[in-house]
Computed example of a mutant assay.
Amino acid sequence: MAHTLTAPHDVVSGASAPRPAARRAASGGMAAGPLFLAAGLAQGFARDGFDFTRNAISQLALGEAGWIQTVNFVLTGALLLAGAAGLRRALRGGAGGTWGPALVGVFAVSFWVAAAFPADAGAGFPAGAPEATAMSGHGAVHMLGGMVGYLALCAAFVVLARPLAARGLRGWAVATRLVPVVVLAGFTASAASVLAFTAGAGLGLLWLAAVTARLTGIPANR
């Protein structure tokens, strides 16, 4: 009888208590979204001819000061990969421990694709650019990379809702399943409103930071 009472305390899942190493690695994922958006907003307000209602943040990589946004893409991708590694350590052996981090990793790589293949000029940016231009090869790769990346992020949210629910965070789990709907709605509305696209993409980045912080800071057996 004594063994029956003490056994549950002896058997602990590898994902039951997030380790300091996991939290340190995940800090990159927590910082990535806020830093990317803060840098994008600062540049958007500072660059001549840029209009958030007409231009995508990706276009900030164009022009003389475009290197700043290129660095922003590269740094964000690196931070997201670190976050994916932290999630993998925190969720190892538990729900979502394989596919969640892997999908976040795909999302991270999409930022490097964006850095290597810049968006096309257009809608008056950079200053002097025509309103409409034909899509180039690098512009097509940029769009495809972004599409694949954000689809991976949406799938990651669906997967990561499972460990949130396992930790008793039912509200977080429900919200994490709903956020992809808003992100995809922003993408769908992008043809009519660039601002809707930016808002949807920004929400995805910020929610990923919040989910990463939640999953790496709360034990699985909470």
Score class of each variant (00 low, 15 high):
T198L: 15
A56K: 07
L151V: 14
V74M: 11
G49S: 08
G66L: 04
L160A: 07
C154L: 08
G33F: 04
V158E: 07
F73W: 10
F45M: 06
L35T: 15
A123F: 05
T4E: 13
N55F: 03
A199I: 01
A32M: 12
H3V: 14
T6F: 08
H138N: 08
A189Q: 02
S190V: 05
A132Q: 12
W172K: 07
A196R: 00
A46M: 12
F36C: 13
M1N: 11
R92C: 09
A132R: 14
L195D: 02
E131T: 05
A201H: 05
S27N: 06
H142S: 06
A155G: 11
S16C: 12
S193R: 06
M143Y: 05
R47K: 13
A78I: 15
A132D: 09
L35A: 14
Q59Y: 07
V12T: 14
G29T: 12
A213P: 03
A115L: 11
L41D: 00
A65L: 13
I218K: 04
G96T: 09
L195P: 00
A185M: 02
G202M: 07
P8V: 02
S16N: 11
A82S: 15
L103T: 00
T98P: 03
F50E: 02
V104T: 03
F197Y: 11
A173M: 10
T4K: 08
H9A: 15
G100C: 09
P101W: 04
V109R: 01
R167M: 10
T133W: 05
F197W: 03
L103S: 01
V12F: 05
G96F: 12
R92F: 11
A108R: 00
L79T: 14
A7W: 05
T133H: 03
L37G: 04
P34D: 07
V109C: 03
T176W: 02
P163A: 11
F52T: 04
L103C: 02
Q59T: 11
G146D: 00
T6R: 10
L208A: 09
R89D: 13
S193Q: 05
V174M: 08
V183P: 01
G217P: 08
L169Y: 03
V12D: 06
V12L: 12
L60H: 09
A209F: 07
R19G: 13
D10L: 14
L75I: 15
A121T: 07
D48W: 09
A155E: 04
N55R: 07
M143C: 04
A46S: 14
S110A: 04
L81A: 14
L62W: 01
L164I: 14
G29R: 04
G66Q: 02
A26W: 08
P18L: 13
A82D: 10
R214K: 13
T133C: 03
W67Q: 07
V74Q: 05
V104F: 09
N221L: 11
V179P: 00
P219K: 11
R177Q: 12
A132W: 10
